[in-house]
Amino acid sequence: MTLMERMAMTDQPLLRVEGLTKRYGQRIGCAEVSFDLYPGEVLGIVGESGSGKSTLLSCLAGHQRADLGRIVYDGRDVLAMPETERRRLSRTDWAYVHQNPRDGLRMGVSAGGNVGERLMAVGARHYGEIRGKAADWLARVEIAADRIDDRPSAFSGGMQQRLQIARNLVTGPRLVFMDEPTGGLDVSVQARLLDLLRGLVRDLGLSVIIVTHDLAVVRLLAHRLMVMKSGRVVEQGLTDQVLDDPQHAYTQLLVSSVLQV
């Protein structure tokens, strides 16, 4: 793809969300969320627990059905799509990295099988090629080649998370949803994972929506930031702008609550 084509493409948002609302009975999950996500862009969503950020992410990824609003991916209305198509999309063009790798991995299947599953789901039927690709992706997420036939249950938490990322990226998705990808990892492992993610996002030109409560993570990864409170977006803008010059009272509280070492 030439640079001109790339620039022409970036005129069109990859994902456009309009007035997305999800209610749990009388309570609001998230309300009237709208944003555009352009190709290659990383959007961070921050907020305290219960602010609706995970609800928003699962509505976007199709795990839950939104009550109101529109989600347009690549010119197609996701909510109006038949389920077959939506599930195919979530196997090929989309990826979802769970906070707990146990939710995103098959713990009874070897690392190679975990990475190969998406390939086989889209029709790969050549064992040698599947294994080759799996080995390649394990190397890219810094898992030793001789661990390819080990089960994830024999892996450390950081390795499991890296394996989950490899498993998701193997089919070359364009849009990645991440739900607290660094949650539950100690800081040194977190730092390596963030480093890895930043490299992958840049090299593959991925669009990412990353939900986290860790401001350091979004500072490092996200281009743009959305701050949520009680199900609503209270502030959005460029990451550095929002973090360095917070306008909304809640954002100010959030930024000032970060512990300094």
Partner: peptide, 16 residues
Amino acid sequence: LEEYGLMHVKLYEDIA
């Protein structure tokens, strides 16, 4: 939905 990739994961595990 004819999502049968998982069946091949089992065969993959066998060969591995």
